[in-house]
Structures are given as C-alpha cells and as structure tokens.
Amino acid sequence: MTEQRSKPTGYVVAGVPHAAAIKLAVIDIKPGEVVCTVPFDPRFVGNPETGVVHGGIVTALLDNACGIAVSSRTRQFGQIATLDLRIDYMKPANAGADIYAFAECYKVTRNIAFVRGIAYHDDRSDPIATCAAAFMLGTKSDKGVNLPPKEGG
C-alpha cells in the first residue's frame, strides 16, 4: 500500500513544543484516523554506528499520533491523557529515512478511548513497530485549546 504524501497540515502539532522539536507533522486526518510523520534527523540517532533512529522517536511519534486520532474522533482536544501504550518493535528504522505513523481510534466508551497504530517507512504491511494504547477522556486540563479550524469555513 503506497501512502498519499500530501503536504503537512501543521494542525494540532504546532502548539506542542516536543512535536515541533521533532518536526512532527500531520499529513492526513479524518475523524478517528491520522497519518503523521517525523523526518529523519541525525540528532535522533540511537546507534551512531548504524545511523538507526532511536526507538524513543518511534515511541513519541506513535504516542502523539494515537492522541491525535482520539482527539479527531472525540473532539476533546487537550483533555485526554494516555493511560498506557504498548509498542512492539518489528524491525529497526532505516538510517536516513523518514518515519510515518498511522493511528486509528477504533472504540470510544464514556471514559476511555482505544487506539492502535503502525509506524512504517513506505508500506504499512512492513511495519517498524505497532502499538496499542488506551486514553482517559475528559481529564481536566484546558478548555479545548488546540481546536482545529472548522473545515470548509
């Protein structure tokens, strides 16, 4: 499966300092589903001998992608908290290559949202890592800051 590589929307992540620091960008979003990317950066290397990006970058990318997937479905922007995140690492990222993440919020209950995600280079069926996460909804934090501009006006 080849990805649509549309221009980054810049939405949501602009207000998140760490997302900005790793240049995380949303490239596709619809309610409950998101595709994000982190470009390769030599500062993110975890093993200087192989040039492979550290697993922590994959963790940050998947965590953020899962959070956006939940927000895009529940519209509780900034009012969710990660309960847990499990990541399975299938293979190291390729040195020098950008990493993509697809996250899908597949179930929402009154209090909890369940999400799964995949990190990959070009092909979702050849994952770098997969994850499953649960988020607490309606935590007291902000008042819906980060709400995206309304579509179509």
Binding site: A19, G56, T59, N64, L85
Partner: peptide
C-alpha cells in the same frame, strides 16, 4: 513539553 496548557511533559 507535550501539553503546554497544563503544562506537562510529552508522553513519548
């Protein structure tokens, strides 16, 4: 930082 409003460290 992951949530600048609280503020809170990024979960990742």
């Amino acid at each position: 930082i992951g949530n600048p409003i609280l503020p809170a460290l990024h979960g990742g």
